[in-house]
Simulated assay, not measured.
Amino acid sequence: MAIEFEFDTFFNALDRTKEQVLESAFIGVHDATDVLLATSRDEAPLKKGTLRTTSGKNVEVDGNTVTGEVYFSAVEEGRSGRVNYAVIVHEMGEYKNPTTPGTRPKFLERPLKRDAKKYNGMIASAIRKGLR
């Protein structure tokens, strides 16, 4: 006497669930990076507007990993060659005379750290919604 179990349906369901989690996580990371990008743009200096107009985001899935990136890339020619002054401005001490009230250094790092729980919640919520 033998007992047989056919697991193909079970494994197919697991594969679909994994796919749903990754798709939902992609949506959640996409939404979270949208919010981070908007918030950090508002805190970035606005003297010429270059910092804000050269910012962007990218979301990618690589295997089982979903990665979201927000960037500022204000590259200009300087005495020493090409320089991404977004990094320099981001890492400066407090601005003595900001060109626009509410702008500050660490314009990307501050909102990322301050709102990390919110971003994690957005991603978790998207995954829960995708698994319904």
Rank of each mutant, 00 (worst) to 15 (best):
K118G: 02
F107V: 11
L37P: 00
Y95T: 11
K129C: 13
V35K: 02
D15R: 04
E60A: 04
G102M: 01
K118R: 08
T33G: 01
E60D: 09
P105D: 07
A32S: 11
R114F: 10
S73M: 08
K129S: 12
Y95L: 15
S24D: 11
A32C: 07
E19W: 07
V70Y: 00
V61D: 08
N84E: 15
N97Y: 09
E77T: 13
E69Y: 09
T33Q: 01
F26D: 00
A2R: 04
P105N: 08
L112W: 14
E77R: 15
R79P: 15
T99M: 08
L22S: 00
F5T: 11
K129A: 10
V70A: 02
M122A: 11
M92E: 14
I27D: 10
F11P: 01
N84W: 11
T67R: 10
Y71G: 14
L14G: 01
D15G: 04
I3R: 13
G130I: 05
T99W: 07
G28E: 02
G81D: 07
G63N: 03
V61F: 09
D62I: 12
K96L: 08
R52M: 09
F26A: 04
E94L: 06
T33K: 03
E6A: 06
G78K: 10
E60I: 06
T67K: 15
N97H: 05
A13M: 02
E76M: 02
S125P: 06
T65I: 15
P105K: 15
D8K: 09
L112M: 12
L46G: 08
Q20D: 15
L112K: 10
K48Q: 05
F11K: 07
G102D: 06
G121C: 03
D15Q: 05
G81V: 06
V59I: 15
T103W: 05
M122L: 07
V75K: 14
E91V: 05
N84D: 13
N97I: 01
G81Q: 08
D15N: 08
G81I: 06
K129Y: 12
S55L: 01
K113G: 11
D8P: 01
F107T: 07
H90M: 03
R41S: 13
Y85V: 04
V75Q: 10
A124W: 00
T39D: 02
D34R: 10
T50P: 09
R41T: 07
A86V: 03
K48G: 04
Y85S: 04
Y119T: 06
R132Y: 05
D8Y: 01
S125M: 06
K18G: 13
S55N: 02
S125K: 14
N120I: 09
A2F: 00
V66G: 03
F72I: 03
T9M: 06
A126L: 15
V61Y: 03
G93W: 08
R41Y: 05
R114M: 09
T33L: 00
R114I: 10
R16T: 06
R104D: 09
E6D: 11
D34L: 11
N97P: 01
G81T: 06
T39L: 04
E77M: 09
E94A: 14
G121Y: 14
R114T: 11
A44Y: 05
A74H: 11
V70Q: 07
V59E: 03
K129H: 12
G102F: 02
T65A: 15
E76N: 03
